[in-house]
Design a protein around this nucleic acid. Sequence first.
DNA 1: ACCGGAAATGCATTCGTATACAATCCGTTG
DNA 2: CAACGGATTGTATACGAATGCATTTCCGGT
Lengths: 337, 337
Amino acid sequence: MSNRISAPSAHDVARIAGVSQAAVSRAFTPGASIAKATREKVFRAAESLGYRPNLIARSLIKGESGIVGVVIGNPMSPTSMSALDALSALLSAAGKHILVFTADGSSAVDVHVEDLLRYRVDAVLLLTTIVSTTLAERCQAEGVPIISFNRPPRGSKFFASVTGDNRGGAKCTAEHLLQQGYRRFGLIAGYSESSTSRDRESGFTSFLVSQGLPQPEREVGHYKREGALLAARKLLARKPRPDALFCANDHMALAAIDVARYEFGLEIGRDVGIAGFDNIDEASWPGYELTTYSLPVETMIEKVVAMLLTRTPRKSPGHTTVEGHFIPRNSTRRTRK
Amino acid sequence: MSNRISAPSAHDVARIAGVSQAAVSRAFTPGASIAKATREKVFRAAESLGYRPNLIARSLIKGESGIVGVVIGNPMSPTSMSALDALSALLSAAGKHILVFTADGSSAVDVHVEDLLRYRVDAVLLLTTIVSTTLAERCQAEGVPIISFNRPPRGSKFFASVTGDNRGGAKCTAEHLLQQGYRRFGLIAGYSESSTSRDRESGFTSFLVSQGLPQPEREVGHYKREGALLAARKLLARKPRPDALFCANDHMALAAIDVARYEFGLEIGRDVGIAGFDNIDEASWPGYELTTYSLPVETMIEKVVAMLLTRTPRKSPGHTTVEGHFIPRNSTRRTRK
DNA sequence: ACCGGAAATGCATTCGTATACAATCCGTTG
DNA sequence: CAACGGATTGTATACGAATGCATTTCCGGT
């Protein structure tokens, strides 16, 4: 009595159907040279055994796995979530699959990408993380494209990227705040190292400076609620108090609203304008009505997938910037209607 | 000039190192019989070529892929997210990897699981979804364990499961509400088909009934904000108005708070008590202070991983229930301090 | 010097599928 | 009827690493 559990192989099916293993393979290969009658015979036999081609073996032969590796940086943001969601839908429609890693530390990313290469993934997508240049080079050398999502790479040579218009969105926000009559600006940045944060910050700041205003007061919130609570407390305690805060993402903006409202007793909009970035769900809730800038994650992922699927090797990787749209809400409206 | 891009193989390394391919394999296999000097020679050669063992080939031989398939139901909830996060951390520590699918429709789940089987995954984890019994049977037959997270299966024979104590949590909530003096109860369910929702519902309702109270008024919110907004409007418009609402998850509870506060002008806690389930981040925000029940997702995932890693085939799959803890906050406090 | 045995190594085969190539089959046409 | 061409089908091999088995090496013991 064999204890071994194993799925039926093409040979088993071939024996039942009375054909060769090659015929079985062809039956499952669209466009292969095989008679309709034979194909059906094979299908019937396969059905009776519950046979499905082993993708591992197929990958070994074809040299490509049908798997796209995704490395997600911490913290797992809602943006990453919806990106992953959209990606999964589009890729599985194309018959590809997703191998996911979450990166805790920054050094872990490289390790994960190494693992991905060992699976001979067809491409690597970096969500909210970056990877060392040496590793990127190796991917390039092995013909595995790396695409960076919302993180335009410095050494742009080895990456492709799809990025939201962080600078533009931040500039829109600055214009709007200025037009609403706010004058003393505060800024809660994400990480100093994050290019997303830097772009949002510089887009905001440079517009203000170009209008003859001083640099805004600045604190760092690390993209997290806790950090933003601290940052908002510091900024709002300054004299004179800033009358508008721009936060590098919505999560921090919501935290800032809570601090302003519940700790400083300010009325949002009238006493202090607060704007965020990303347009997460909570931004539209009646308790917040947060002014923000929406990046079209779905569109961006569509571009990513297009890049992944058109395997045009040897072309220098492209960089795409996608525009979003500005969404003014009551959190930056000076006078309530 | 070859245009072919391909990673170096064990043969290449063997040639450089002046050993056989088998030796290369052994060098990378912990505990294999190989001299230290040889191993180092191999490592040096591998290093110089950038060689890494091809996991696809390894999987083919060993009959196991080191991949765990995860199917995530829509909508991608924060709970799924943190579960995925924890899972990724634990599994990659164990050298396993995660192939992710998101299931749009309910029928899609089966298709995804079929795909997973074709990759010869070592196990399948269902997050927030269920799969047909026939497919479950097939997985069982092929020796691929299926574990269901937070969805105890009806036909428990083919699944293992790790579930939060939904009934118990709901009962705690009912006790608390009663003790706070609420008497006219409303309930916003998730899906009628979802066992999680049914457990939370029945835990709540049956306790009330056991205390001689009538069945609560009931609406279905489909676990989504939009649905919950509608449900809350209907419930709060009834005469007499319920003085407490229990919602099958926090998202819906937050929606209910918004409706009660901004549309009905009620003071949360005093006029109407509102409780949720899951303890998502927003529940603790000062604008909500939502009473809820927290399930220890990390602990649950640890159990899942333990199940996945101890390949004890042929044992009837086990079902585990994990307790969480009740978190009373101001949203169900009749008298503010 | 010799032998025994453990350790190290190489050889050949295996996993399951795809595919180049050779061998058929079939219907058509001259 | 024979030759021909296209469509099918089978045979054999390859993909890259792991492993059973046979062989060699090495070391200590006598």
